[in-house]
Amino acid sequence: MIKQNLGELEEKSIYIIREAKSHFKNVAALWSMGKDSTAMLAIARKAFLGKVPFPVIHIDNSIDFPETYKFREDIAKKWKLDLIVAESKINEELSGFACCGANKTVALKKVMNDYGFDALIVSIRRDEHGIRSKERVMSPRDENFKWNYKNQPAELWNDYSSKLDKKGHMRIHPLLDFNEIDIWNYIKKEHVPVNPLYFSRNGYRYRSLGCTNCTVPVKSNAKTVDEIIKELENTKIEERSGRQQDKEKERTMERLRAFGYM
């Protein structure tokens, strides 16, 4: 995995977050307590003189690990976050992608409407997935939250689109240029707090945090940020491979157990 210049990446993110704040009236950010969105908050604090200047939304399906809830409370207090918990319900009938899509989106739509947010910061990265690498830094979503990917706005240089469907909102992607390893190097350099689920326990760790029902840990002995960086320098496995629960249904429970899940 290629390590990029952290200073340059950070400057670009700061610029994007500040642009979002100055363009839009009512900005919010998604915070999953995962490494990317937490790193994004650390950058926002640096961009805005030590405090995160927008509310952060946790889409809570109430089945996250206890570690995650504790992390949420600790960081929200420490960083004085304006935390909005949006409750989402697990749909037992659906699974995997359909389930995620249904619940998370319903909950998100509700919270966006209730508060009237016109821009949402989402900490996705291009190297996560082939489709994500097609995203723009600023990307409009329509009233139904749909991404018109076949007709994206022009985005030359740093001329980010500010045009918006009246009833829709803008997605802001300040971490698009980061690679997974850059996030970890940034966490190391800036001492960004890390959700303990990322560190190895009984030979497994989470590499990407999705919903508890659908994300499984991957084999790893990395117990520190340094060990994670070392692991990533040589890996050939996709970051989100732990989310391909459908392929490995039988082994899901085994791995969850190994991680101490009931």
Partner: peptide, 24 residues
């Protein structure tokens, strides 16, 4: 198809939108 990730791109055999990939 490693880059052309949209269904329409694959079916139509063309790139619709720009994408990026790094090598060392």
């Amino acid at each position: 198809f490693i880059l052309d990730s949209f269904y329409e791109e694959r079916k139509g055999g063309l790139t619709i939108d720009t994408t990026r990939a790094q090598i060392r």
